[in-house]
């Protein structure tokens, strides 16, 4: 049986993992798993996302608990690194190296015999072939990000860890990289993407894990996370004719928490969204009100996330 924090066929498993630095607890008893597809790791700065990713990559040792990738503890079995690609948050590039040499170096370190051809293929994927022989020190932030993505792809790993991979990229590059990540997920790779930019995660992740203060605050797809937050009323925007009459009918109902009449729309807060929909259907039929829009306002990742952080 799986719960939202766990998947059926995990490639990455985190079990009661904690990490503290002196008095500061960065990750607190987190248990979750990751499988094929894209999982977004969300959280404000300082939530513990990067630390959790470092634990997964074996760059940091858990103070408590265990982390395994494809069943192996990477820190004990470095050979398993063949199946892992990492795009770190930092600018982990050698400024004097060309993009081509950087990728070839990575391929050689991973024991690949066909490094040069793989390097060029990875540069082609991130659209950097024309800059292959320029030194990384002269690259823009966005180009360095794409080079790091290419370096992670060069070994064709089963598990890809991407820590804020879209930082510094322009909208066109961003769309291109998101497409690349989606393709990898479709090919059966496990892609874990951390970001604090909600719109990016919403565009690419099938599943979201939200971290707040080092703990896992929620897991699942955005709508199910929102639905599970039963203590926070849903907010809906309704447009149509005769909205004042609709509002006065709704305000009398006990399950409607708030009604706010605006110029072009009425905003309703209710605890049960489906019950609200049924009531509105009856009211509009009885009063002959025609609705042109019925739009949940807080089912976006941003609002869900705002609730989680505020909790």
């Amino acid at each position: 049986m799986t719960t939202p924090a766990f998947v059926a066929d995990p490639t990455v498993e985190v079990e009661r993992a904690s990490k503290w630095f002196g008095q500061k607890v960065a990750v607190s008893s987190v248990s979750c798993s990751f499988g094929q597809g894209i999982t977004g790791l969300l959280g404000p700065n300082g939530a513990g996302k990067t630390t959790l990713l470092r634990l997964i990559c074996g760059l940091a040792a858990p103070s408590e608990g265990t982390v395994t990738v494809l069943g192996e503890d990477l820190r004990r079995n470095p050979d398993s690194y063949r199946q892992l690609g990492l795009v770190p948050e930092e600018d982990a590039v050698y400024p004097q190296m060309t993009a081509r040499r950087y990728l070839e170096y990575g391929a050689r370190l991973s024991g690949l015999a066909d490094g040069p051809s793989r390097a060029m293929e990875a540069l082609r994927v991130v659209d950097l072939v024309e800059s292959a022989d320029r030194t990384l020190g002269g690259f823009s932030k966005g180009m360095r990000q794409r080079t790091k993505v290419a370096a992670a792809l060069v070994t064709d790993p089963q598990v890809l860890i991407l820590d804020e991979p879209l930082n510094g990229t322009d909208p066109v590059q961003r769309a291109h990289l998101i497409e690349v990540f989606r393709r990898l997920a479709a090919d059966g790779k496990t892609v874990i993407v951390s970001s604090h930019v909600l719109a990016e995660v919403e565009r690419m992740a099938d599943r979201v894990l939200a971290m707040v203060d080092g703990k896992l605050a929620a897991a699942g797809d955005v709508h199910s996370i929102r639905a599970a937050m039963s203590d926070i009323p849903f907010r809906v925007r309704i447009e149509g004719n005769d909205l004042r009459r609709l509002a006065s009918e709704l305000v009398a109902r006990s399950d409607v928490a708030a009604v706010e009449v605006g110029k072009d729309a009425v905003h309703i807060e209710a605890e049960d969204l489906s019950a609200l929909g049924r009531h509105i259907a009856i009211i509009t039929r009885d009063l002959d009100i025609r609705l042109t829009a019925f739009q949940p306002e807080d089912e976006s990742l941003e609002s869900v996330f705002r609730y989680l952080v505020r909790r």
């Binding site: 990477l74 690194y81 982990a92």
Partner: peptide
């Protein structure tokens, strides 16, 4: 910050 480039290798 290139230590990770070396250490995430087999």
């Amino acid at each position: 910050s290139t230590m990770s480039f070396l250490t995430i290798r087999p």
